[in-house]
Amino acid sequence: MSMLPDLLLVMLVLGAALWTVAARDRRSSVIGFIALGLLLALVWMRLYAVDVALTEAAVGGGATGLLLLRACARLDSIDAGKPSAGRTLQLLIGFCCAAMGVGIAAAALGGPDLPPTLAPAVAANIDAVGLGNPVTVVLLAYRAIDTLLEKIVLIAALVGVWSLAPDDVWGGPPASLKLAKASEPLTFLAQILPPVGFVIGVYLIWNGADEPGGTFQGGTVLAAMWLLVMLAGLAEPPETRRALLQYLVVFGPAVFLISGFSGFWLAEGFLSYPTGFAKTMIVALEVALALSIAVIVAMMLAGPSARTPR
């Protein structure tokens, strides 16, 4: 009985994945992908990974979904390329992929009966940091370097997105996100949803220290709400050359860097926190990072500059 929901869920996930690959037009494919993102949030929940479930819902269902849907709308006039492969080749590749799937399943599931794990090590050291959410501890203490570099990856990608602007509009605002058919209900939604979403975003950031949630989930929700306001035409995307925007982009990583270096003097080395202050520092860090993430994600979704700066 307890397996039934899991079985159904897996079937829905694989169905949505097949649809995404096999759908005739790219829009249907994207919609399949968004549905998959929502379903995956449930899968992550079943694997007892609530933090990941929140991330998957916010990114897979929200941010990536909007990104791909807008891309579809803008690519609308361009003909979709047909798969050029013949039926035999398709079958051949399909067979190879199936074999690969079987191989991965065998390699991933065939391990020892008592799989090795770091869970006890995480639990044993968690008191030294003083946070209740082990995932946040891994992200901001044990493996803080990954999180710091991940922010640099985001910034590099944002600069990459910005670099695609034509020379003459560099520094100007991205194309307006205002919907061509912004209807009254939509505008209404864009007015009432952001305050609610803002509270949820802040809650996720704040809660992340002890309960599931955290910077990226909260930051993405904040970004989504800002985008909603822009979609309804209630605000315009800012000029990318604005100093405030640029400072917001680097603010979180800069605070991270400073707190990391302060460990040389205050604690036991780079990226280590002073005893007793770890929780305070991590929560402050999370707030700074979430702010930058919200701006970076929103600007990535808004795209490169498309209008001349004033």
């Binding site: 770091l118 090590a121 995480v122 050291n125 203490a141 044990y142 493996r143 803080a144 370097i145 990954d146 460990g263 604690a267 036991e268 080395g269 780079f270 990226l271 280590s272 926190y273």
Partner: peptide
Amino acid sequence: YLLGNWRPPLGV
């Protein structure tokens, strides 16, 4: 150098 003074495999 152990980042954050955490020993691998927990740290990097």
